[in-house]
Design a protein around this nucleic acid. Sequence first.
DNA 1: CATCTAATTAGATGAGCATCTAAGGAGACG
DNA 2: CGTCTCCTTAGATGCTCATCTAATTAGATG
Lengths: 201, 201
Amino acid sequence: MSDADLLAFFKAMANESRLRIVGLLAQRERTVQELAETLVLKEPTVSHHLAVLKEIGLVTVRPDGVMRWHALDAGALAAMNRRLVSQEEVAALVPEESWESRVLSGFLDAEGRLKALPASRRKRWVILQWLVEQFDEDRRYPEAEVNATLQRRHWDSATLRRELIGAAMMAREAGVYWRLPRSAWRSYDDARLEPSQAMTA
Amino acid sequence: MSDADLLAFFKAMANESRLRIVGLLAQRERTVQELAETLVLKEPTVSHHLAVLKEIGLVTVRPDGVMRWHALDAGALAAMNRRLVSQEEVAALVPEESWESRVLSGFLDAEGRLKALPASRRKRWVILQWLVEQFDEDRRYPEAEVNATLQRRHWDSATLRRELIGAAMMAREAGVYWRLPRSAWRSYDDARLEPSQAMTA
DNA sequence: CATCTAATTAGATGAGCATCTAAGGAGACG
DNA sequence: CGTCTCCTTAGATGCTCATCTAATTAGATG
């Protein structure tokens, strides 16, 4: 079942009349007339609500002469329900977080600062990509400002600055730094970054 | 948890943005800014959605300096979920149909006419209570009108009329009938109704 | 076939709601 | 105290949807 289905399910249930219809159908099957009378609604309105519930597979119809008996599909309810039982399932509501995002959030603390620099070169690359985004593309920065910006993310601004240069994400000339375009970056697997010591916060 | 809470829960989840927010918060706590950026919404919009989710107790806030970290309350999700696991729970969405209602609907056909008069004294009492409501409290009826009204519900108006009198739900004098107040009625278990023959329609 | 009843479809109306911009706190920080 | 940042509140706008009336379909029945 897709996320769109789940949304449709919630939209279907997010209406008092439909919620009451579901409750009534959970007791026993009913006709449109009967529901309309019970809910004090006109038949077309009930018909409309039943169409919505049928659309998501929650209600089935059994024609009988000129009447149509509507019943709740309990299995469909249970299926929807399984989507919500665990926090993990709910987390999956969101398009899978990319590997990069998961690496990054694993190394960030609640304040958005780096808890450590990963030892893995590939993971460190993710961190550097994120770090370089702290700088504007079109500005030139004195070293003091670079350090200040980096220190908002980690105490060891010197190492971070050195690694950004090493990855060709930033350039330096005469004490002035600037951000390089993505095209200039080395890819993580040919960058020759010296293995850094663990930098635990 | 009340039905109104359940409806509020569905209304809260019946929106794509909020559904995605819940998914994101299920992964880890987030700030308004972060959510706004991820969802491509303005901060006030996210703020509004978070307020809705807080209203139903699904999201909690942890202020931290100028920022506010929002997190999912997994327990609240689980609680909502328990409401939906079984068909019995869903049936309870609707105020339990009383025994009287079930008796009545069992003896009515689709047209609202009596299929039969129950043999059980207690059940017949339910039918009579419903029948007497066909008459206004403050009017006096000639016998012909009483018969006509009763015949809209069952062919044997004579028996119905006799039983209404016997139950002290209606009174008659000089060929004129009127409805008696509920206080005047005999209770079903001391009414001395002659056991009626089965009256199948 | 004509008619009756149950239900659905079509179309209109009005209420609710998602989102935005603009303005107003409120904590942090020099 | 003034300013910056993050967030919320207020108010406006436009879209979605719940409900209704009127018209149509479709089975049942004489």
